[in-house]
Amino acid sequence: MMSKRNARLSKRIVCLAVMMLTVGISAYAQNFPIHSVKVIVPFGPGGSGDLTTRILLQYTNLGQPTVVVNIAGAGATIGTMEAYNSKPDGYTLLANTPAGMILGGFQGLYSEDVFRKMIPLIVMGLDNPVFCVSGKSQFKNAKQFFDYAKANPGKLNLASVGMSTMYTSSLVVRDSVGMDLNYVSFDSSTKSRAALLGGHVDSLLATISENKALIESGDLKPLFVLSAERSPFLPDVPTMIELGYNVTGCLGTRGIWAPANTPTSVVKKLESAFLKAAQNPEFKKVYLEKMAIEPVAWDSATCRAWVDNNAAYYKDLLHKYSK
């Protein structure tokens, strides 16, 4: 009798404890955020990846302050891993480019789980690649360049940075046009630009935001952009699609991620706060007029679909060109 009552009591206590815990957790998630939210930027301060994030956060209202923490190194791997390994409570987020996240997973910088399991909250900006030759180059347009490259396989050099998004974009171009370019990887985008201006390479693949000024001054000649539509910053430059190649390449997406297993209610709160900020006309104006970045506002589901579709595409492409 006594023991039965005891057993019942202890059962009740366990039940109560479990209930309190779940209520506690959901209340905790409901009240999110109760303190400041940390956003890890896996790039150094002052660069495009840093500034685009800081500007979005300026217009984001979570009811609590947001803090940017720069953890740079190893092509965004270090900061990405710090975020991946942090507690999934919504208080630590990651501002990394979705395309870069996918490629990091495929190239063995970290496991594929990082981009498959982490939750993309928003893509707020596009900084697409533009294919340039020097202002003094003999090539007047993309067709001339393609024809020459096809007639002289492997003769022309294409400079860009690293083996991630820009390399994959170069594969997109090579594959669709059917030309063989000698890809020269530099350890920073500024050095690749200096190499083109100094005549050490024949062409350059780089982001529009970083090269707009030199394109306007005539030092760089843009041949085409890798995007679905023409860039608002280079309205006279055709896309690959207009040139007859049905590819958009490796879109230069700027986004924010939450660690895997972040509670859904927290994800929803973050997502709506970021979407609201990205739709703010003032925010769009800053991106357009100061940063030369196309403002967009993709919600979490759109981002997820984009990541999954492109992951498959990139995987095939990388596999085809891996030696």
Partner: peptide, 12 residues
């Protein structure tokens, strides 16, 4: 970065 954030593109 201090220039870019104010919409100034360093260049010629």
């Amino acid at each position: 970065g201090g220039l870019v954030i104010h919409g100034l593109q360093p260049g010629p």
